[in-house]
Amino acid sequence: MAEEMKVIYERPRSWANKVTHYCPGCTHGVAHRLVAELVDEMGLLDKTIAVWPVGCAVLGYEYFTFDSVEAAHGRAPAMATGIKVTNPDNFVFTYQGDGDLASIGMAEIVHAAARGWPITVIFINNGNYGMTGGQMAPTTLLGQKTTTSPLGRTPQTNGFPIRVAEMLAQLDGPAYIARVSLDSPVNIRKAKSAMRKAFNAQVRGIGFSMVECLSTCPTNWKLTPVESMERIRKEVMPYFPLGEFKVAQGVL
C-alpha cells in the first residue's frame, strides 16, 4: 500500500519534550505550546531568550530548547529590558502570571510598556496565585473565593480586579495589546494569531507587545479541567472581555 502520512500536527522543535510539572488540564501547557510553535514557525529558535517568572511557570525554562533566564518575582520586564538592550537583534519575551505581573511587578510592566521597547509579554491570567496554593490575585473576580478571600472577594476589603490589557493600552508605548482565551479550540487558534502579531511587533521592531491569556487553574478553582474551561466562558470573560486593545501601524 503506497500510502504516506502527512503531518497534521507534531510537537514543535522548540519544545524540550519533557513532562511538565503543571496540574492536569492547566492551560499553562497550552500557552507554552503556542509559544514553541511560533518560535518554530517564525524561525526564532536561535535568537530567543525567554525570561521566566516566579509562580507556576518558574520552571518554564525546563521545557524549551532556547536560551532562558529566571527572573525575580515581578521583575521579568526589567530583566528583559536589560537583555534586549545588550542584544537588540535577539527575540526576548517574558512569561508572567497575574501575581507576578499585576501585583508585585506592576511597576516593571507599566514602565516597560511605557518605554515601548520591543519586548513581548505573555501574561497568564488565571485569577489566583496558583503555585502558592490559590490565594487572591489582583485579577481575582468579585465574589470569587480563594484561600485569602475565603468568603469571596469584596470591593470593600479587597478592591477591584485589574484589567491589565485595557490599562496598558492607554499608554502610548505599546505596539500591540490583546486579551485572548485558552478555553476552546477556536479561541486557542485566535490566541495563537494574537501571539503571532505580538511576536511580529517585536521582530519588526515596532514596539512593546503583550498578550493576556485567560487561563484555568482547575486545582485551585476546585473544578475539573472541562468545568474550568466553562468557567472562563461564563464568569471570567464577562469581566475580562476578549479583544485587541492596541494595534499599532505595521503590526500583522
Binding site: 521583575r75 530583566m79 536589560g82 537583555i83 516593571e108
Partner: peptide, 24 residues
C-alpha cells in the same frame, strides 16, 4: 553603550541582572 533610567532601584538592578546574563 546604552544608558537606561529605570523606574526604581528594584528595576535597575534587575535590568543589570538581564544585561549581566548577556555577559557584558
Amino acid at each position: 553603550g546604552r544608558f537606561v533610567q529605570a523606574e526604581s532601584e528594584v528595576a535597575s538592578i534587575n535590568m543589570v541582572y538581564g544585561a549581566a546574563c548577556a555577559g557584558v
